[in-house]
Design a protein around this nucleic acid. Structure first.
Lengths: 144, 144
DNA sequence: TCAATAAAGGACATTTTTGTCCGAATTATA
DNA sequence: TATAATTCGGACAAAAATGTCCTTTATTGA
């Protein structure tokens, strides 16, 4: 569904949000540890998130990654997915046709439209804050 | 969503079904031409489909691929997807966690369950026959 | 100012996916 | 029986995704 990079990216962003709620800025090493991901690869992904204004990065001692409380509401999953995987998941054709649409549909088009729309809606409506609070309360997990 | 191999596999299977409805057995070359896919790669995928009893293959002159009318009903998309991509798409965790379930859910678990279930249901309920007939009537397309 | 800390960035390595090539096996038909 | 058409199977090639390493840059605080 999502690429590995995107999975790590979402998990990392949620962890950063959770810690920012506690007022803590976190390092790549801590993030990778807490979401169980390869450190250097995670660092690359965090750079992408930072460049796409999804999280903030601060260099130097006491540096790390963080996200403002208001951005947690503004940043929806769709923004993260688009930044890392592009939007082909919920825009492209299920069978890989370039020009698949209601006028010239692939055999799966109609059946796919609903699922794709549900997925898009879910990603566009789910904020980082929402996901972070579930974690905060101990209802959800980011590892294993 | 699906791998390229799986996209080609579904398109190939639908084309074989369509031609079998007309009583024609088709070659790899014709299939690749009609679904706009790389020939040799498509040949490998057809082998997989054949080994998984999704389509039949016949060697030698006048040989090619075909599928029985009754198998078109029995073969659902889920069988093709499982044969090529495995069932991780609609079974695995959206964020890549190995042990994600209702007891120990990832932050996206609840929101993903519905979409994943819809996808699984759709794949399990859609037969090759159904897809082939849409093509036959000229309502859908396999190229571009 | 200097040392230590942390992200940024580039080069490289590994693995997986996608794709190609070619000879072997099978079989219809002349 | 010989030939040609076709799939099968293995080895190889290329591209993309995943992952690592090391140097540079920025910044803090002693």
């Amino acid at each position: 569904m999502f690429s590995k990079a995107c999975e790590y990216g979402i998990r990392a962003a949620v962890y950063v949000a959770l810690q920012s709620l506690e007022g803590r800025r976190v390092s790549v090493i801590e993030i990778a540890e807490e979401i169980d991901s390869p450190i250097a690869f995670t660092a690359k992904i965090l750079q992408q998130l930072s460049k796409n204004d999804i999280i903030n990065s601060v260099k130097g001692p006491t540096g790390g990654f963080e996200i403002e409380r208001e951005d947690m509401d503004a940043v929806k999953l769709s923004k993260i997915v688009k930044a890392i995987d592009g939007d082909n998941i919920y825009v492209g054709c299920g069978l890989g046709l370039r020009e698949c649409n209601a006028d010239k549909p692939c055999p799966l088009h109609d059946k796919f439209v609903d699922i794709r729309t549900d997925l898009r809606t879910m990603l566009q409506n789910t904020s980082l804050f929402e996901l972070a609070t579930g974690l905060e309360v101990g209802l959800t997990y980011l590892k294993r």
